[in-house]
Design a protein around this nucleic acid. Structure first.
Lengths: 173, 173
DNA sequence: GCAACCGATTGCGAAATGCAATCAGAAACG
DNA sequence: CGTTTCTGATTGCATTTCGCAATCGGTTGC
């Protein structure tokens, strides 16, 4: 399913790519949540996507060149999804989007941590994060001085909240 | 129709606001195209929105606090729509979105002019543009040194293309 | 008067969405 | 082996949304 091309306007075309309720959510979970497998995306996203829609969107994002799929060597059945450079360059947009939402919408304070960290770090932090994503998803060598991993910091903040929420929804024992 | 609040994540909530195929297009035409009336938005957008959807989205954007509506004093029937500060602060996001689309999607070269100008101007230009929008839509006094209007520059570039396209679709005589 | 224009609204077929159940193959465990 | 669990999906079906065309009551310009 290629683009409709209702017009050649960059904003319109961008909307045709991720102007729906799920595509950006999936990319968010891959970028910030580190999800790489179907099941991780299915159960891991806080918003509860349906499996048929997830399958459809993954396929579509692959056709659009935002994702690639490969076989997990450790599991013949497992597929592993990777971000392309096209998807990785969405980081600044997601950062802006998060910052905007944090100001104007009734976000839950816990879930805003990630957006807040990205906002405070600014473009330099985004670049570092994108370099880490390139390393993880494209195999690009991670150059020189690493310092603390942005990825790990963001994910830890996120996982903490997800775990808390999961515990609330289905308390152990 | 308030937010669904599938989750309190800033990115999710932002998507609930304009994660559809039309809301951002409408805001784009108001912000960059200077459209203020129903008919202008209906006929002026290059993508051809249906009148019922336009009416629905305008209502929704008002309920969400992105737009306000007022009676045009010169026309009893005419309504004039204004951007709120919430909508004006989308400018950086739209600029990023345009820049991203310009790189990765098959945009028509003519329509990319606007995105290109915004990209080259960077945040300082965005700020100036937002100040102009505040003046137009919120009545904020336009402070001191104005210089050439960003608004006028962007709109001129856009109108030229729209006129050209309209002439192609329905050639005069 | 009367045609053109104003912001919508209505009806209807087509498409997308949400949900639950299910699939076949592979792996893990005994 | 045999069963259970997990893998990435697929199917069927009800609900919602979308897209399009026609139309509405009212206003304006002539």
């Amino acid at each position: 399913m290629p683009l409709d091309r209702r017009s050649g306007c960059p904003i319109n075309l961008s909307l045709e790519v991720f102007g729906d309720r799920w595509s950006l959510i999936i990319l968010r979970d891959m970028i910030f949540g580190g999800r790489r497998h179907f099941r991780e995306l299915l159960n891991g996203s806080m918003e509860g996507i349906a499996s048929n829609i997830l399958a459809d969107r993954l396929k579509r994002l692959m056709e659009l060149g935002m994702l690639t799929k490969a076989h997990d060597p450790s599991h013949k059945q497992k597929a592993i999804y990777s971000l392309t450079e096209m998807a990785i360059t969405l980081v600044p947009i997601l950062a802006h989007l998060g910052a905007w939402g944090r100001i104007w919408l009734p976000t839950s304070e816990e879930l805003s941590i990630r957006a807040e960290l990205l906002e405070k770090g600014g473009p330099p932090l985004w670049e570092k994060f994108m370099a880490e994503l390139r390393h993880e998803h494209l195999g690009t060598p991670l150059d020189e001085t690493c310092g603390p991993s942005v990825r790990a910091t963001l994910r830890a903040a996120y996982e903490a909240v997800v775990a808390e929420k999961a515990a609330y929804v289905s308390p152990a024992a």
